[in-house]
Design a protein around this nucleic acid. Structure first.
Lengths: 141, 141
DNA sequence: TCCGAATATTTTGATTATCAAACTAAATCC
DNA sequence: GGATTTAGTTTGATAATCAAAATATTCGGA
């Protein structure tokens, strides 16, 4: 089928986009003094707000055992705090500190700048269209 | 500035898309019996063809020292071969084996299916538009 | 042609990340 | 109220990673 060629091309452009975004992120994170996974955790917490170990581990694709040691380090480096919710004293709520929030805001700003760069030559209509298409794709996952 | 809101929203949709793609990839790779980074190497070699250690390491964001041990394992698991080019006997060309090529094709097919799923409800025009916008973004990186 | 500098990869030694499984503590369910 | 489930931590072993040293080859003059 000829129509499949569109899907294939699109699929490859998506993979290329993903890889370039990975490299960009890696380059940006070097120089912060934090590890990639710590910044990733900060990003997730910045977007979604405080969450439990289990939920954060799932979002990061690691086990809670691994996350425990990561959070230990992130507490030591001042990015996050542990809080025990009154409703369930088994649980641990991982929360950004003020310093962690600052790091998140700075990192988010870099993403914002990148987005500007990538869509610099697009018209407002095209940018709006792209936003709509991303929203729809995110919805179909 | 009001216009920035578009950039910010778009930036957040891109991050969400990236995260969902990461999770998808992780889920897909579990069950193959290969590690995420091995499959990633296979993907890069499948798209770009055989390449040197240095180039592959750069694309993967790791040092050549780390890559050496990865390639050792991938050779043992039958995914790749090492070849020494006649033109420069210092270098090592990492090449997919037939089995590695099969793994690549299978993995690429899964990406293809995902792309279909994500754009299922789009018109051909919208899909074409999306392709064009991805091409332009990839160009601006 | 020969030698020092540069390049490509591997090896080494140490650190860090990771997992599965055992463990602890708290909540929930008959 | 005791058994079961759930949330997180700890442990022991393995795998991934890096920087720096080592090895092998090529290249660029004199």
């Amino acid at each position: 089928m000829v129509m499949d060629i569109n899907h294939r091309k699109l699929s490859h452009e998506i993979i290329e986009f993903y890889d370039k975004l990975s490299s960009w992120e890696l380059a940006v994170v070097k120089g912060t003094g934090h590890s990639l996974s710590h910044i990733h955790a900060v990003e997730i917490l910045g977007v979604n707000g405080a969450m439990r170990m289990k939920e954060l581990a799932e979002k990061m694709g690691i086990t809670t055992g691994t996350l425990t040691v990561q959070i230990d380090k992130m507490v030591r480096s001042g990015l996050v705090m542990r809080q025990v919710p009154q409703t369930d004293r088994r649980a641990v709520l991982v929360t950004l500190t003020e310093a962690g929030e600052v790091i998140y805001q700075q990192h988010d700003e870099l993403h914002h700048q990148l987005t500007k760069q990538l869509t610099m030559k697009m018209s407002d209509d095209e940018r709006r269209c792209l936003l709509g298409l991303f929203e729809r794709m995110n919805h179909e996952f």
